[in-house]
Design a protein around this nucleic acid. Structure first.
Lengths: 198, 198
DNA sequence: GTCTATAACTAGATAGAC
DNA sequence: GTCTATCTAGTTATAGAC
Protein backbone atom coordinates (compact mmCIF):
# COMPACT_ATOMS: atom_id res chain seq x y z
CA UNK A 1 0.00 0.00 0.00
CA UNK A 2 2.89 2.29 0.72
CA UNK A 3 3.80 3.33 -2.77
CA UNK A 4 0.91 2.15 -4.84
CA UNK A 5 -0.27 5.52 -5.99
CA UNK A 6 -2.07 5.46 -9.28
CA UNK A 7 -0.96 7.92 -11.89
CA UNK A 8 -4.21 9.73 -11.34
CA UNK A 9 -3.39 10.18 -7.67
CA UNK A 10 0.08 11.41 -8.52
CA UNK A 11 -1.42 13.77 -11.03
CA UNK A 12 -3.78 15.25 -8.45
CA UNK A 13 -1.03 15.63 -5.93
CA UNK A 14 1.26 17.38 -8.38
CA UNK A 15 -1.58 19.60 -9.51
CA UNK A 16 -2.21 20.66 -5.92
CA UNK A 17 1.46 21.47 -5.46
CA UNK A 18 1.53 23.41 -8.70
CA UNK A 19 -1.57 25.43 -7.90
CA UNK A 20 -0.18 26.25 -4.50
CA UNK A 21 3.18 27.28 -5.89
CA UNK A 22 2.06 29.28 -8.86
CA UNK A 23 -1.61 30.07 -8.41
CA UNK A 24 -4.42 28.71 -10.54
CA UNK A 25 -4.05 31.11 -13.43
CA UNK A 26 -0.29 30.99 -13.53
CA UNK A 27 -0.12 27.22 -13.28
CA UNK A 28 0.33 25.73 -16.68
CA UNK A 29 -0.96 22.34 -17.69
CA UNK A 30 2.05 21.53 -19.84
CA UNK A 31 4.20 21.98 -16.76
CA UNK A 32 1.88 19.71 -14.84
CA UNK A 33 2.11 17.08 -17.57
CA UNK A 34 5.88 17.35 -17.53
CA UNK A 35 6.05 16.82 -13.79
CA UNK A 36 3.86 13.76 -14.03
CA UNK A 37 5.79 12.49 -17.01
CA UNK A 38 3.20 12.57 -19.75
CA UNK A 39 2.32 14.86 -22.61
CA UNK A 40 -0.03 17.82 -22.31
CA UNK A 41 -2.84 16.31 -24.28
CA UNK A 42 -2.86 13.15 -22.18
CA UNK A 43 -4.07 15.06 -19.15
CA UNK A 44 -7.51 15.29 -20.62
CA UNK A 45 -7.99 11.59 -20.26
CA UNK A 46 -8.05 12.22 -16.49
CA UNK A 47 -10.14 15.35 -16.25
CA UNK A 48 -12.33 17.44 -18.49
CA UNK A 49 -10.90 20.88 -17.85
CA UNK A 50 -8.55 22.88 -15.71
CA UNK A 51 -11.51 24.28 -13.86
CA UNK A 52 -12.77 20.81 -12.99
CA UNK A 53 -9.31 19.94 -11.76
CA UNK A 54 -9.24 22.91 -9.41
CA UNK A 55 -12.71 22.16 -8.17
CA UNK A 56 -12.02 18.49 -7.51
CA UNK A 57 -8.84 19.39 -5.69
CA UNK A 58 -10.43 21.97 -3.46
CA UNK A 59 -13.31 19.66 -2.85
CA UNK A 60 -11.02 16.85 -1.75
CA UNK A 61 -9.00 19.20 0.38
CA UNK A 62 -12.07 20.50 2.14
CA UNK A 63 -13.28 16.96 2.75
CA UNK A 64 -9.94 16.02 4.23
CA UNK A 65 -9.95 19.08 6.44
CA UNK A 66 -13.46 18.51 7.69
CA UNK A 67 -13.09 14.81 8.40
CA UNK A 68 -9.58 15.27 9.71
CA UNK A 69 -10.55 17.99 12.15
CA UNK A 70 -13.69 16.14 13.21
CA UNK A 71 -11.59 13.09 13.98
CA UNK A 72 -9.11 15.15 16.00
CA UNK A 73 -11.81 16.86 17.99
CA UNK A 74 -13.45 13.53 18.66
CA UNK A 75 -10.49 12.28 20.66
CA UNK A 76 -11.34 14.43 23.64
CA UNK A 77 -14.33 15.94 25.38
CA UNK A 78 -12.34 18.74 26.92
CA UNK A 79 -12.73 22.00 24.98
CA UNK A 80 -9.28 23.19 25.96
CA UNK A 81 -7.69 20.04 24.61
CA UNK A 82 -9.83 20.37 21.52
CA UNK A 83 -8.70 23.92 21.04
CA UNK A 84 -5.10 22.84 21.02
CA UNK A 85 -5.97 19.97 18.70
CA UNK A 86 -7.56 22.40 16.32
CA UNK A 87 -4.50 24.61 16.08
CA UNK A 88 -2.20 21.64 15.69
CA UNK A 89 -4.35 20.10 13.02
CA UNK A 90 -5.08 23.27 11.13
CA UNK A 91 -1.54 24.57 11.05
CA UNK A 92 -0.12 21.19 10.16
CA UNK A 93 -2.59 20.70 7.35
CA UNK A 94 -2.18 24.19 6.02
CA UNK A 95 1.59 24.20 6.06
CA UNK A 96 2.37 20.56 5.24
CA UNK A 97 -0.80 19.14 3.80
CA UNK A 98 -1.52 15.44 4.04
CA UNK A 99 -2.03 13.69 0.74
CA UNK A 100 -2.81 16.98 -0.81
CA UNK A 101 -1.45 20.41 -0.23
CA UNK A 102 -3.58 23.22 1.06
CA UNK A 103 -4.62 25.59 -1.69
CA UNK A 104 -5.07 29.20 -0.64
CA UNK A 105 -8.48 30.64 0.01
CA UNK A 106 -7.43 33.20 -2.53
CA UNK A 107 -8.07 30.64 -5.26
CA UNK A 108 -11.73 30.55 -4.38
CA UNK A 109 -12.33 33.39 -6.77
CA UNK A 110 -11.15 31.24 -9.65
CA UNK A 111 -13.98 28.81 -9.16
CA UNK A 112 -16.99 29.13 -11.38
CA UNK A 113 -20.15 30.12 -9.52
CA UNK A 114 -21.64 26.72 -8.83
CA UNK A 115 -18.31 25.22 -7.89
CA UNK A 116 -17.70 28.21 -5.69
CA UNK A 117 -20.94 27.68 -3.80
CA UNK A 118 -20.09 24.09 -3.03
CA UNK A 119 -16.64 24.86 -1.71
CA UNK A 120 -17.88 27.77 0.37
CA UNK A 121 -20.47 25.46 1.91
CA UNK A 122 -17.72 23.07 2.96
CA UNK A 123 -15.63 25.89 4.30
CA UNK A 124 -18.61 26.85 6.44
CA UNK A 125 -18.89 23.29 7.72
CA UNK A 126 -15.30 23.43 8.77
CA UNK A 127 -15.83 26.69 10.54
CA UNK A 128 -18.83 25.23 12.33
CA UNK A 129 -16.63 22.59 13.89
CA UNK A 130 -14.63 25.38 15.47
CA UNK A 131 -17.77 27.21 16.49
CA UNK A 132 -19.03 24.10 18.24
CA UNK A 133 -15.75 23.77 20.09
CA UNK A 134 -16.13 27.34 21.31
CA UNK A 135 -19.72 26.77 22.36
CA UNK A 136 -18.59 23.78 24.39
CA UNK A 137 -16.01 25.96 26.06
CA UNK A 138 -18.64 28.54 26.79
CA UNK A 139 -20.25 26.07 29.18
CA UNK A 140 -16.98 26.09 31.07
CA UNK A 141 -17.01 29.84 31.34
CA UNK A 142 -15.11 30.88 28.24
CA UNK A 143 -16.03 34.33 27.11
CA UNK A 144 -17.60 33.58 23.75
CA UNK A 145 -20.31 36.03 22.82
CA UNK A 146 -19.53 36.22 19.15
CA UNK A 147 -18.50 32.68 18.29
CA UNK A 148 -18.57 33.33 14.57
CA UNK A 149 -16.07 36.14 14.83
CA UNK A 150 -13.93 34.13 17.21
CA UNK A 151 -13.93 31.04 15.03
CA UNK A 152 -12.84 33.14 12.06
CA UNK A 153 -10.03 34.60 14.09
CA UNK A 154 -8.81 31.15 15.04
CA UNK A 155 -8.85 29.94 11.47
CA UNK A 156 -7.20 33.10 10.16
CA UNK A 157 -4.47 32.85 12.74
CA UNK A 158 -3.76 29.27 11.81
CA UNK A 159 -3.82 29.80 8.08
CA UNK A 160 -1.59 32.83 8.41
CA UNK A 161 1.32 30.65 9.47
CA UNK A 162 1.61 29.54 5.87
CA UNK A 163 2.81 33.02 5.01
CA UNK A 164 6.01 32.90 7.02
CA UNK A 165 6.72 29.35 8.19
CA UNK A 166 10.10 27.95 7.16
CA UNK A 167 11.23 24.42 7.82
CA UNK A 168 14.53 25.68 9.17
CA UNK A 169 12.93 28.12 11.57
CA UNK A 170 13.40 27.87 15.31
CA UNK A 171 9.89 26.74 16.09
CA UNK A 172 8.35 23.41 15.14
CA UNK A 173 4.78 23.31 13.94
CA UNK A 174 3.65 21.88 17.26
CA UNK A 175 5.39 24.66 19.13
CA UNK A 176 3.79 27.28 16.94
CA UNK A 177 0.40 25.66 17.33
CA UNK A 178 0.73 25.50 21.09
CA UNK A 179 1.72 29.13 21.34
CA UNK A 180 -1.15 30.09 19.14
CA UNK A 181 -3.65 28.14 21.18
CA UNK A 182 -2.26 29.53 24.41
CA UNK A 183 -2.48 33.05 23.11
CA UNK A 184 -5.92 32.45 21.72
CA UNK A 185 -7.18 30.86 24.90
CA UNK A 186 -6.07 33.86 26.93
CA UNK A 187 -8.31 36.03 24.83
CA UNK A 188 -11.29 33.96 25.94
CA UNK A 189 -10.80 34.59 29.63
CA UNK A 190 -13.31 36.70 31.51
CA UNK A 191 -12.36 39.75 33.46
CA UNK A 192 -9.91 41.14 31.00
CA UNK A 193 -8.69 44.53 31.95
CA UNK A 194 -8.28 47.38 29.55
CA UNK A 195 -10.12 48.16 26.40
CA UNK A 196 -13.56 48.53 27.82
CA UNK A 197 -15.87 49.82 25.14
CA UNK A 198 -15.83 53.47 24.19
CA UNK B 1 -8.17 69.41 -5.66
CA UNK B 2 -11.15 67.21 -4.97
CA UNK B 3 -11.65 65.67 -8.36
CA UNK B 4 -8.53 66.55 -10.24
CA UNK B 5 -7.21 63.07 -10.70
CA UNK B 6 -4.95 62.70 -13.64
CA UNK B 7 -5.62 59.87 -16.01
CA UNK B 8 -2.54 58.22 -14.72
CA UNK B 9 -3.89 58.29 -11.19
CA UNK B 10 -7.20 56.89 -12.34
CA UNK B 11 -5.36 54.24 -14.24
CA UNK B 12 -3.42 53.16 -11.15
CA UNK B 13 -6.50 53.12 -9.04
CA UNK B 14 -8.41 50.98 -11.52
CA UNK B 15 -5.43 48.68 -11.89
CA UNK B 16 -5.32 48.15 -8.13
CA UNK B 17 -9.02 47.35 -8.11
CA UNK B 18 -8.64 44.96 -10.99
CA UNK B 19 -5.70 43.14 -9.45
CA UNK B 20 -7.55 42.80 -6.21
CA UNK B 21 -10.69 41.52 -7.91
CA UNK B 22 -9.17 39.13 -10.37
CA UNK B 23 -5.60 38.51 -9.28
CA UNK B 24 -2.52 39.62 -11.16
CA UNK B 25 -2.46 36.79 -13.66
CA UNK B 26 -6.17 36.83 -14.32
CA UNK B 27 -6.34 40.58 -14.67
CA UNK B 28 -6.29 41.56 -18.29
CA UNK B 29 -4.87 44.78 -19.58
CA UNK B 30 -7.49 45.20 -22.25
CA UNK B 31 -10.09 45.15 -19.51
CA UNK B 32 -8.09 47.72 -17.61
CA UNK B 33 -7.91 49.94 -20.68
CA UNK B 34 -11.65 49.60 -21.15
CA UNK B 35 -12.36 50.67 -17.58
CA UNK B 36 -10.14 53.69 -17.94
CA UNK B 37 -11.63 54.51 -21.31
CA UNK B 38 -8.65 54.12 -23.60
CA UNK B 39 -7.36 51.48 -25.97
CA UNK B 40 -5.11 48.64 -24.92
CA UNK B 41 -2.03 49.90 -26.65
CA UNK B 42 -2.30 53.30 -25.02
CA UNK B 43 -1.56 51.85 -21.63
CA UNK B 44 2.06 51.48 -22.53
CA UNK B 45 2.52 55.20 -22.63
CA UNK B 46 2.01 55.11 -18.84
CA UNK B 47 4.03 52.07 -17.87
CA UNK B 48 6.51 49.72 -19.44
CA UNK B 49 5.00 46.38 -18.51
CA UNK B 50 2.35 44.68 -16.48
CA UNK B 51 5.00 43.60 -14.02
CA UNK B 52 6.12 47.19 -13.50
CA UNK B 53 2.53 48.16 -12.93
CA UNK B 54 2.11 45.57 -10.21
CA UNK B 55 5.36 46.56 -8.60
CA UNK B 56 4.61 50.26 -8.59
CA UNK B 57 1.20 49.58 -7.13
CA UNK B 58 2.44 47.37 -4.35
CA UNK B 59 5.21 49.81 -3.67
CA UNK B 60 2.81 52.70 -3.31
CA UNK B 61 0.49 50.62 -1.18
CA UNK B 62 3.28 49.64 1.18
CA UNK B 63 4.40 53.25 1.44
CA UNK B 64 0.89 54.32 2.28
CA UNK B 65 0.58 51.60 4.88
CA UNK B 66 3.88 52.40 6.53
CA UNK B 67 3.44 56.14 6.65
CA UNK B 68 -0.23 55.81 7.52
CA UNK B 69 0.39 53.49 10.43
CA UNK B 70 3.36 55.51 11.66
CA UNK B 71 1.17 58.60 11.69
CA UNK B 72 -1.57 56.80 13.61
CA UNK B 73 0.82 55.42 16.18
CA UNK B 74 2.37 58.85 16.61
CA UNK B 75 -0.85 60.31 17.97
CA UNK B 76 -0.42 58.61 21.33
CA UNK B 77 2.30 57.39 23.66
CA UNK B 78 0.10 54.79 25.28
CA UNK B 79 0.74 51.31 23.87
CA UNK B 80 -2.81 50.19 24.49
CA UNK B 81 -4.18 53.12 22.54
CA UNK B 82 -1.63 52.40 19.85
CA UNK B 83 -2.71 48.78 19.70
CA UNK B 84 -6.25 49.82 19.04
CA UNK B 85 -5.05 52.35 16.48
CA UNK B 86 -3.16 49.62 14.72
CA UNK B 87 -6.18 47.38 14.37
CA UNK B 88 -8.37 50.23 13.25
CA UNK B 89 -5.87 51.41 10.71
CA UNK B 90 -4.90 48.02 9.39
CA UNK B 91 -8.40 46.68 9.03
CA UNK B 92 -9.65 49.87 7.48
CA UNK B 93 -6.83 50.03 5.00
CA UNK B 94 -7.07 46.36 4.11
CA UNK B 95 -10.80 46.30 3.64
CA UNK B 96 -11.45 49.76 2.21
CA UNK B 97 -8.11 51.02 1.04
CA UNK B 98 -7.42 54.72 0.81
CA UNK B 99 -6.47 56.02 -2.60
CA UNK B 100 -5.46 52.54 -3.56
CA UNK B 101 -6.89 49.21 -2.68
CA UNK B 102 -4.98 46.64 -0.70
CA UNK B 103 -3.56 43.92 -2.92
CA UNK B 104 -3.30 40.52 -1.32
CA UNK B 105 0.00 39.23 0.01
CA UNK B 106 -0.69 36.31 -2.29
CA UNK B 107 0.36 38.48 -5.21
CA UNK B 108 3.86 38.77 -3.84
CA UNK B 109 4.81 35.63 -5.70
CA UNK B 110 4.01 37.31 -8.98
CA UNK B 111 6.75 39.84 -8.45
CA UNK B 112 10.05 39.25 -10.14
CA UNK B 113 12.93 38.62 -7.73
CA UNK B 114 14.30 42.11 -7.33
CA UNK B 115 10.87 43.66 -7.10
CA UNK B 116 9.94 40.99 -4.62
CA UNK B 117 12.88 41.86 -2.38
CA UNK B 118 11.94 45.50 -2.26
CA UNK B 119 8.34 44.86 -1.34
CA UNK B 120 9.26 42.28 1.28
CA UNK B 121 11.60 44.83 2.83
CA UNK B 122 8.76 47.31 3.13
CA UNK B 123 6.48 44.65 4.52
CA UNK B 124 9.10 44.05 7.18
CA UNK B 125 9.25 47.75 7.99
CA UNK B 126 5.52 47.71 8.52
CA UNK B 127 5.80 44.72 10.78
CA UNK B 128 8.51 46.44 12.76
CA UNK B 129 6.14 49.24 13.61
CA UNK B 130 3.93 46.68 15.26
CA UNK B 131 6.89 45.05 16.96
CA UNK B 132 7.90 48.39 18.41
CA UNK B 133 4.41 48.92 19.73
CA UNK B 134 4.60 45.56 21.47
CA UNK B 135 8.00 46.32 22.93
CA UNK B 136 6.63 49.54 24.34
CA UNK B 137 3.82 47.57 25.91
CA UNK B 138 6.32 45.18 27.38
CA UNK B 139 7.60 47.97 29.59
CA UNK B 140 4.08 48.18 30.98
CA UNK B 141 4.06 44.48 31.77
CA UNK B 142 2.62 43.00 28.61
CA UNK B 143 3.66 39.42 28.11
CA UNK B 144 5.69 39.73 24.94
CA UNK B 145 8.47 37.20 24.72
CA UNK B 146 8.20 36.50 21.04
CA UNK B 147 7.34 39.86 19.58
CA UNK B 148 7.91 38.71 16.01
CA UNK B 149 5.38 35.93 16.33
CA UNK B 150 2.95 38.23 18.08
CA UNK B 151 3.27 40.98 15.51
CA UNK B 152 2.59 38.48 12.76
CA UNK B 153 -0.49 37.28 14.56
CA UNK B 154 -1.80 40.81 14.85
CA UNK B 155 -1.26 41.52 11.18
CA UNK B 156 -2.74 38.21 10.10
CA UNK B 157 -5.80 38.76 12.23
CA UNK B 158 -6.34 42.16 10.72
CA UNK B 159 -5.77 41.13 7.15
CA UNK B 160 -8.04 38.14 7.58
CA UNK B 161 -11.05 40.41 7.92
CA UNK B 162 -10.85 41.02 4.19
CA UNK B 163 -11.94 37.42 3.65
CA UNK B 164 -15.36 37.79 5.19
CA UNK B 165 -16.22 41.45 5.73
CA UNK B 166 -19.41 42.64 4.08
CA UNK B 167 -20.61 46.21 4.07
CA UNK B 168 -24.09 45.10 5.10
CA UNK B 169 -22.82 43.09 8.03
CA UNK B 170 -23.82 43.86 11.59
CA UNK B 171 -20.42 45.12 12.67
CA UNK B 172 -18.74 48.28 11.51
CA UNK B 173 -15.05 48.25 10.81
CA UNK B 174 -14.39 50.16 14.01
CA UNK B 175 -16.38 47.63 16.01
CA UNK B 176 -14.52 44.76 14.44
CA UNK B 177 -11.19 46.45 15.06
CA UNK B 178 -12.03 47.13 18.68
CA UNK B 179 -13.08 43.55 19.28
CA UNK B 180 -9.93 42.34 17.65
CA UNK B 181 -7.73 44.57 19.73
CA UNK B 182 -9.57 43.64 22.89
CA UNK B 183 -9.20 39.97 22.15
CA UNK B 184 -5.60 40.41 21.20
CA UNK B 185 -4.78 42.43 24.25
CA UNK B 186 -6.18 39.74 26.52
CA UNK B 187 -3.69 37.31 25.06
CA UNK B 188 -0.89 39.56 26.26
CA UNK B 189 -1.89 39.44 29.90
CA UNK B 190 0.33 37.66 32.38
CA UNK B 191 -0.93 34.90 34.62
CA UNK B 192 -3.08 33.18 32.06
CA UNK B 193 -4.51 29.97 33.37
CA UNK B 194 -4.62 26.77 31.38
CA UNK B 195 -2.30 25.57 28.66
CA UNK B 196 0.87 25.44 30.62
CA UNK B 197 3.54 23.87 28.48
CA UNK B 198 3.63 20.11 27.99
C1' DG C 1 -3.75 5.54 -21.41
C1' DT C 2 -0.67 7.99 -23.85
C1' DC C 3 1.20 10.21 -28.07
C1' DT C 4 1.44 13.76 -31.79
C1' DA C 5 -0.37 17.48 -34.04
C1' DT C 6 -3.05 21.25 -34.17
C1' DA C 7 -7.13 24.15 -33.64
C1' DA C 8 -8.91 28.18 -31.33
C1' DC C 9 -8.09 31.69 -28.59
C1' DT C 10 -6.03 34.95 -25.45
C1' DA C 11 -3.02 38.39 -23.79
C1' DG C 12 1.23 41.19 -23.41
C1' DA C 13 3.72 44.17 -26.04
C1' DT C 14 5.29 47.10 -30.26
C1' DA C 15 5.11 50.51 -34.27
C1' DG C 16 3.73 54.23 -36.54
C1' DA C 17 -0.10 57.49 -37.64
C1' DC C 18 -2.56 61.41 -35.78
C1' DG D 1 -1.44 60.86 -25.21
C1' DT D 2 -4.21 58.06 -27.66
C1' DC D 3 -5.53 55.26 -31.75
C1' DT D 4 -5.28 51.29 -34.92
C1' DA D 5 -3.18 47.38 -36.41
C1' DT D 6 -0.39 43.68 -35.64
C1' DC D 7 3.27 40.68 -33.86
C1' DT D 8 4.40 37.02 -30.97
C1' DA D 9 4.09 33.74 -27.66
C1' DG D 10 1.70 30.97 -24.81
C1' DT D 11 -2.31 28.14 -23.25
C1' DT D 12 -6.42 25.32 -23.00
C1' DA D 13 -8.51 21.89 -25.27
C1' DT D 14 -9.57 18.53 -29.17
C1' DA D 15 -8.87 14.63 -32.61
C1' DG D 16 -7.29 10.67 -34.17
C1' DA D 17 -3.37 7.36 -34.29
C1' DC D 18 -1.05 3.72 -31.56
Amino acid sequence: MANSKSRKEILFQEAAKLFREKDYQAANLRELAKRVGIQGGSLYYHFASKQELLFQLMNTIMDQMISGLAAELGTSDDPLTQLRSFFRFHIRFTVCGSDLVYISDDELRHLEPENYQQIIAKRDSYQQLVEQLLKNGQKLGWQVEDYKLLSRIAIQMGTGVLGWYRQDGTLSIEEIADRYSQFYYCGLQPGSKGLTAD
